[in-house]
Nucleic acid binder design. Structure first.
Lengths: 146, 146
DNA sequence: TATTGTTATACTCTATAACTATA
DNA sequence: TATAGTTATAGAGTATAACAATA
């Protein structure tokens, strides 16, 4: 590396978009490091959590909540079904839709993955106290809920 | 949309990685809406800001700071040069490297783009007070600086 | 022997258009 | 006429290997 003084980030560090993205990237790097054995990418993990907490949910509801376009969700769900993590049942009132729920294997996987993901994210945010992390979560939720 | 009660996000909203990403996505959507005329994607904008605030910086320093791999930065810099936003000069002490700096046109562009980007990010975070936003920025910086 | 910048390439992520079955 | 799910495809974004020139 060429010798030189540290770069002046200046203006960038006052931009919420820049700092939020950098923080998210750092957290995801730690996730990749510690969650690799689960073979669940962050977005897949989020989808599986929502299915677990909302049995009978439809793909459309999932996509709307997670901001994932329908064609991209199809791949996730097919993979989940191939691995016997979820099952797709007839929807009680809409024959176009299917109700998603975890299989026993999916529930067992999630039971292990959830605490591991929480621990990973806590490691990545170790610079903050518990109270500071709670504040951060509250502020971020208020940003994306608008 | 199939009728149904709201989805229980439950666990997900306690995950720093999930909420940070969702907030960043929302801010970037607003950026895309208001900054479209600049033809500067967020990562390109960040690179241009760093060049503007650090005249003579090398591509490697830029890539390290922004977490952009060298081959991907090459495309940005070529496009910047084609548009006459930057110039690449011989580095004073390392003949492999080149010192980057804005042209007059690049400086003029940045002078308009910086306040516009700040205003866009502030719009996207309008749910927070000034003091809350300052707290959020501080906490996020501490996360990604580790 | 290591590093800067570069080319070529591949892989992942995300977005769009169009189709079917049903509402 | 609109929506749920799907297919096919295209575009961004990101990552790796290998190279010439220089340190």
């Amino acid at each position: 590396m060429v010798a030189g003084k540290a770069i002046d980030l200046g203006f960038l560090e006052a931009l919420p978009g820049y700092v939020a993205r950098r923080a998210a990237v750092r957290i995801f790097v730690e996730y990749a490091r510690t969650m690799g054995s689960f073979e669940l990418r962050p977005a897949e993990f989020a989808a599986l959590v929502l299915i677990g907490h909302n049995p009978g949910v439809t793909a459309r509801q999932l996509g709307t909540e997670l901001a994932i376009a329908p064609p991209n969700l199809v791949k996730f769900l097919r993979r989940f079904e191939e691995r016997d993590w979820i099952e797709r049942n007839p929807h009680p009132t809409d024959r176009r839709a299917r109700g998603l729920r975890l299989t026993a294997a999916g529930a067992a996987l999630l039971k292990r993955a959830e605490p591991a993901a929480l621990a990973s994210d806590r490691t990545a945010t170790a610079a903050l106290s518990d109270a500071e992390l709670a504040t951060l979560l509250d502020l971020l939720r208020r940003v994306y809920k608008g």
